[in-house]
Design a protein around this nucleic acid. Structure first.
Lengths: 129, 129
DNA sequence: CTTGCATCTGTAGTTCCTACAGGTTTTATC
DNA sequence: GATAAAACCTGTAGGAACTACAGATGCAAG
C-alpha cells in the first residue's frame, strides 16, 4: 500500500509518517520503481501502536523503548522487568486520573441536564495536592 | 508561597510556570515588593489539574476549555453538553487503550518471571487496525 | 557588608509535529 | 498515446509546548 492509504488506515498524517522514518522510529520501507514508499499490514499495527501511545502522553523516546520491549531480545530480563514495572505504575496513575476526569465531566454534563449552567467548583475535589 | 515552592508542590518546572503565565493559561499572580511572584493553594490545585491533563495527552487549548467548563459561566448549557460529551468519548477511549497497554506490559513482565526473555509478538494482538 | 542562593526578564534551543514550495510519478480521460 | 489531475517526492520553514541559558536583581545569614 502507498503512503496515502497507510496514512488513512493509521490516522497519521503523511508528513508525520515521513518524520518518523527520518528519526528512525519507523524502518525505511521498500520503494516502487518511481521511489514511492510501500507499506504492509505489519507496519499499520506498529504505527497504530505509536499513534495511540502518543495520544496517551508517552514521549517518542518512551515509545521507542516500549517497541523494543515488545519486540523482545533487546534487553536483559532484569531490564525488562524494571522498565515494564515503571511503566505499569505510570499507566495505573493515568487510568486513575482519567477516571476522575470522567467523573467530573459526567457531573458537569449531568448538572446541565436540568437546564442549569454549572457553577460549583468541582475542580477543588479533583486533582488536588 | 514563592515560585520555587510552587514548582515543587506541583511538579512543574519554574520555566513552565512562567511560560503558562505568559500565554495566559495561569493568571498573573501578585508580587512581593521585590517583584517576586506569590502563589496560594488555590493555584496549586489549578496547576496540578493542568499538569496532569497534559500528561494525559490534552493540548493546552483543550485544557483552557476544560478549565472554563469546570469554572462554569463561560458557556451556554448546550455548549457545555456538547464539549463534555466529546471529551467523555475521548477519555473512555484513552482508558480502554491504557488498559490494553497495562495488560501487555503485565504479560511481558510475567514472561520474564521465569527468567525468560519474551519473544512473542504480543503487539500483534493489541492496537491493531 | 558580602556571599550565596532564589528569583527576575529575555532570548535561544529542543521536541514533535505541520505546512508549504517546487518537482516527479502515477492514473484517469480524451 | 497525449495530457491533465491527483498523489507522491525532497527539502525547508513555521508552530506548539516546553527547556535551558545569560546576565541582572532581591534577600537572608554569617
Amino acid at each position: 500500500m502507498l503512503i496515502g492509504t497507510f496514512s488513512e488506515r493509521t490516522g497519521c498524517h503523511i508528513e508525520t509518517i515521513r518524520y518518523y522514518e527520518r528519526i528512525k522510529l519507523l524502518p525505511k520501507p521498500p520503494r516502487t520503481e518511481g521511489r514511492h514508499r510501500l507499506y504492509d499490514r505489519e507496519q499499520v499495527k506498529q504505527l497504530m501502536f505509536i499513534r495511540r501511545s502518543r495520544e496517551l502522553g508517552f514521549s517518542l523516546d518512551e515509545i521507542r523503548i516500549l517497541l523494543l520491549l515488545v519486540d523482545g531480545k533487546q534487553y536483559t530480563c532484569l531490564e525488562v522487568k524494571t522498565i515494564t514495572e515503571a511503566h505499569l505504575e505510570d499507566v495505573k496513575r493515568k487510568i486513575a486520573d482519567l477516571r476522575r476526569l470522567q467523573k467530573t465531566l459526567a457531573a458537569i454534563s449531568g448538572q446541565c441536564e436540568g437546564g442549569l449552567v454549572p457553577d460549583c467548583p468541582i475542580i477543588d475535589t479533583l486533582f488536588s495536592e
